[in-house]
């Protein structure tokens, strides 16, 4: 790991000022991706600005029809939260299958979403549940947030403060877990909001996306049978050492049907 200067601001304003001020600064949340990246020297920032001491970025609450999760809330806290479990159990169970227990004690929702790993779990929930990403500057809709591999709508120096999840009538998340890494080979969040159904897919492409053919069929009839004949196109999906794009396209259908059955 190359050396850097370390800063631990106590407020969001101080963090924003620091990231704006440093030549090649980087924010660190839980560090579960960033620290391994630094060890491999895939990144060598001049400064690390640690958000762990910014109290206003932590916590979980219900506000009306939304669950609001502070960006620095760790996965274990989301998984164990009674507020989340009673309103959106699918989100709590998703948080409980990220990485392993020790990783879940450090990794945060804001860090996961800002990093936008194509195989991370939370992007599937953000897209599937139509969450809003709240930053120090604005509110970004889920559909406008993920751009491509590790690329989001966040601007330089923009800091996620919280994620707002609308509470669905029913929802479930199913993932085909890579047996060694635990990452999603494919993960699907299905959520029903009245007549609208959203299907958020992670792991399958460069970034999380909505499976619109599945959404249309499920809006007509919310049952696993309704999407039996719906095929996901492999075009544009990832092919890598784990599996081909055709295999991932097939998994989208399987995970979607399992999620609908569970919801």
């Amino acid at each position: 790991m190359r050396n850097f200067d370390y800063h631990a601001p106590a407020s969001l304003d101080a963090a924003v000022a620091l990231i704006g001020d440093k030549e090649d600064g980087k924010l660190i949340a839980g560090g579960m991706t960033l620290l391994p990246t630094l060890k491999q020297r895939l990144a060598a920032p001049s400064d690390l600005i640690d958000l762990a001491g910014v109290a206003e970025l932590k916590g979980i609450k219900r506000e009306g029809d939304e669950i609001v999760i502070g960006a620095m809330t760790c996965h274990a806290d989301v998984a164990a939260s009674d507020v989340v479990k009673s309103a959106i159990p699918a989100l709590a169970s998703l948080a409980g299958v990220i990485g392993d227990p020790a990783v879940r004690h450090r990794g945060t929702i804001g860090g996961s979403i800002a990093n936008a790993d194509p195989a991370a779990d939370y992007p599937g929930a953000v897209v599937g549940l139509n969450a809003k990403i709240v930053t120090n500057k604005r509110v970004i809709a889920a559909d406008d947030y993920f751009i491509d591999l590790f690329e989001t709508a966040l601007e330089q120096g923009e800091i996620i403060t919280s994620v707002r999840f609308p509470i669905p009538e029913r929802a479930a998340y199913q993932k085909f877990r890579h047996p060694a890494s635990g990452y999603a080979v494919v993960g699907v969040m299905v959520a029903k909001f009245g007549a609208d159904v959203r299907v958020g897919v992670t792991g399958a492409a460069g970034s999380a996306f909505r499976a619109s053919d599945f959404e249309a069929a499920l809006s007509e009839n919310f049952s696993a049978d309704a999407i039996k004949g719906v095929k996901m196109s492999p075009d544009g999906l990832l092919s890598d050492i784990h599996c081909t794009n055709e295999y991932r396209a097939h998994l989208v259908g399987v995970m979607a049907r399992r999620a609908v059955a569970e919801a």
């Binding site: 560090g31 690390l48 004690h105 450090r106």
Partner: peptide
């Protein structure tokens, strides 16, 4: 009081 992997945490983060 929480289990963490000490190879993936900076010493300064334990201040």
């Amino acid at each position: 009081d929480k289990a963490v992997k000490s190879c993936t945490m900076l010493a300064v983060q334990a201040q």
